[in-house]
Structures are given as C-alpha cells and as structure tokens.
Amino acid sequence: MTAVLQVEGLHKAFGGVQAVADVSFTVSAGEMLALIGPNGAGKSTCFNMLNGQLSPDLGIVRLEGRDIVGLRPRTIWRLGVGRTFQITATFASLGVRENVQMALYSHAGRLRSMLQRFGAAFRTEADALLSQVGMLDQAERTCGVLAYGDLKRVELAMALANQPRLLLMDEPTAGMAPKERVALMELTAGLARARGIAVLFTEHDMDVVFSQADRIIVLDRGQLIAGGTPDEIRNNAAVRTVYLGGTH
C-alpha cells in the first residue's frame, strides 16, 4: 500500500506545555486510521497541524510525497484533503444540495462569476454525492432545519466533493445517537475502500473505533504510545494503563 499521508516527528508546544511531541505515522489509500487518546492527549492539536490551522514547531507532513506544512487550509483542500468538523460546519441558510454544489463549484474554480445563476451546474454530481450519503430525499431542505445526524451526512458529502485523497474527520460521530454512529462510519469506510481514500479520524466511541478502524494509534500526553490493529491495541498494556488507570 502507498502512504497518502506521511507524518514525521511532529512537535508543538504552547507556552511551556508540550502538546504534541515527536509524533510520526502514515495513512495508506483505502485505510481507516483512528487516532485515539484521553482528553487533552493532543488529538485536536495534532489534527489542526495536518489541516493547516496550526503550524508545527518541528516536523514534516507529506501529502502524497508533497510537504504541506505552512500551507493554508484552503490550499490543502485544493491538494485533495476533505474535512469534517467536530461541531458540524455547513452553510445554514443554503439548501442541502446547494451546500454540496458550493464545494463542487469551488473545486471547479467557478465561484467568481457574478452574473451566472448559481445552481444550474453540478446538479447531477451533487445529487450523486447526496444519494451516496443517503440525503438525496432531503436535497431541497435548508441546512439550518436539519437534524444533527443529517448535517453530519451533508458534511461528509461536501468533504467528498473534491474527490479527496485524504479525509480528516474530527470526532465525526460526536453528538449522534449510538446507532447512527456506527452507520455513518460504516458508510465512510465503504466509500473510502471503494474510492481508495485514506481516512484519519479521532473518536471517543470505542465501539465505533474498534469495529471500523483498520489500524489505531494511541496518543497520551502528546506522545504516541501504541499503534496497531484493533486486536493488538485491545491487548496492549500501555493502552490499558492510560484508559483504565493504574500505576504510571
């Protein structure tokens, strides 16, 4: 398998606090990699350095071999990285289909026009994406009135719009009912494998993590303490100590 995302020796400190220290890992095409760890372990910091919101003190982040450290989030998106947020971020006053069309228009570089009417182009493409995430029947509704789980699906459709090589999903199932959670991640895993997309996600729900991830890496106090298949992680002594407590 080829590595889509390659992270080497990532460091970030806030004031005197080392939030992330010497973190390295890779994600391959079609692979679901879960990044887990207790609260304050540095997951969000780590994530934000990958998507361009924070820049690392040290370290290399390569997307398909290209160094992306220091690039803006919008540039990183153009290189083929889709994102979903912990708290959904969609365009509340626009329709569901229009939300997805925004991403498609942007991908095609067609948002500058002032005189064309928005919405005529990329209709079929948008509907195709919406049907993949099971939201086609709500395409005409306004995002502001959707249920939370449905918003997560819209976000996923938007994240897929630029045919990403890598999906970054920060707490993709936060705020959803348990049944919906597994369904959303099964959907994601299916799409990722079919399209060869690398997926990196953080998650608190261990059922979701252990049932959907191909590989798991564990972060504690800024450092990677373990990595491996779900079975390996389940039996890892260090991970048990972090999650179940014990003597340090």
Partner: peptide, 27 residues
C-alpha cells in the same frame, strides 16, 4: 442578480460558516 450568482452564494456561505468556507477552498 449578483446575490444569486456563484459569487453571491459564496458571500452567504462565508457569513454562515467561515470555517467551512475556508475548508472548501474559498478565499
């Protein structure tokens, strides 16, 4: 007219969620 063009939609989108706008490549 501009309000209903791609440019106008981009403005409304940016007002609704600057975070998402940036995340789909909008300056």
């Amino acid at each position: 007219r501009v309000l209903f063009s791609p440019f106008g939609f981009t403005l409304r989108a940016g007002r609704d969620s600057p975070l998402r706008a940036e995340a789909i490549g909008i300056d």
